[in-house]
């Protein structure tokens, strides 16, 4: 049975069939990779560029970064705090999802783009405390409309930086390259 299949695969028709199969699998995979690299659809077309350009500080909307593990995503009340005083809020079609959600008393279901897997316990506070700025990891948000993740946040990327920061300090290096620092 196997021999027969193998012989058929070596015949011209067989070769073409195998080629087509391989090609379609490859294109499916490529499509999948492409899909997974697209920024996700957000509940509202929020533009970082505009807000940061207007001088809004990162920590205004993501205050948790200074104190704890998660920077937090703003609640709609925070948006509304400013937007209720802006005339364009009621007229702009782009802002309609916010106006509607506010009227219904619903929240935004933001989709975070900079994520680490469940088995990594990342916390912002020490990174900020160590003097890192937001853009060191998240890129220059003044140039970004809808949030994208500029980095592949994998372990090599983490460790590269950890090793640089700890260069020359044996104790710090031990701590920053310990498995248990992030994985538990």
């Amino acid at each position: 049975m196997i021999r027969k299949t193998f012989e058929w695969a070596l015949s011209p028709m067989g070769r073409i069939a195998v080629l087509i199969a391989a090609l379609s699998l490859f294109s499916l995979a490529a499509f999948g990779v492409y899909q997974s690299q697209q920024p996700p659809e957000q509940p509202i077309q929020f533009t970082h560029k505009l807000h940061v350009g207007l001088g809004v500080q990162c920590l205004y909307c993501h205050p948790g970064a200074l104190r704890g593990p998660s920077p937090g995503l703003p609640t709609i009340s925070k948006c509304w705090g400013c937007h209720q005083q802006i005339g364009k809020t009621q007229t702009s079609p782009l802002l309609k999802p916010m106006v509607d959600a506010m009227a219904k008393g619903e929240g935004f279901t933001w989709v975070p783009v900079a994520q680490v897997p469940d088995f990594v316990h990342f916390t912002h506070r020490p990174h900020v405390a160590a003097g890192l700025n937001c853009e060191n990891c998240h890129g220059d948000m003044t140039q970004v409309t809808i949030a994208v993740n500029p980095q592949v946040m994998n372990m090599g990327w983490c460790l590269n930086c950890h090793k640089q920061k700890a260069a020359g300090d044996e104790e710090k290096l031990t701590k920053l390259t310990d498995c248990g620092t992030c994985h538990y």
Binding site: P117, F119, T174, K175, D178, C179, G180, T181, H183, Y184
Partner: peptide, 16 residues
């Protein structure tokens, strides 16, 4: 199952 040098504990790294 590495040994944590920093905390002196036995670790279990689930993702590994």
């Amino acid at each position: 199952t590495p040994h944590s040098e920093a905390e002196q504990l036995n670790l279990q790294v689930y993702n590994r």
